[in-house]
Amino acid sequence: MGSGIKKTGVPSREELKNIPGVPSEARLEEGPVAFIECVQEIPCNPCEEACRFDAIEVGKPITNLPKLNEEKCTGCGMCVAACPGLAIFKLHKNYTAKTSIVEFPFEYHPCPQKDDNVRCVNREGQFVVEGKVIQVKSPKKFDATVLLTVEIPREYLLEVRSIERKRCK
């Protein structure tokens, strides 16, 4: 099948390394930060608009890839809910000594609740590890998009990107 976003819908390691929206390893160590997996030049900039800290720059034309200013990013998570592509994640590597948290948008039923144990999946939808929901956010301005914050063992930080969607029946 080949690899990369165009072939699989999943950005490859290479692609993620080469885009301006991904924070450095050093920055991941420091605290919560946005991780922007937007690798194609599509006409779009709500992430830039959503950030009150000027930490995302798309500029003109709006087909530019979003560029993260990792120093300015506070990890507030506003961009995660604003992205129509659901391509932004908030990562907090050193949440506890052994765990990290990943925050991502979720728009399916049933939606898990705080403290639920959930099956976490990678970008291909494959099960990776069990995690625990520590926050469920759905303020009115997200317009029905729910942000889930899930605590996972730290080694899976760069893999976990969602949770298993409950199949029908």
Binding site: E107, Y108, H109, C111, A144, V146
Partner: peptide, 8 residues
């Protein structure tokens, strides 16, 4: 009946 975006 119940939809994550459209509601009930």
């Amino acid at each position: 009946k119940s939809h994550p975006i459209l509601g009930e």
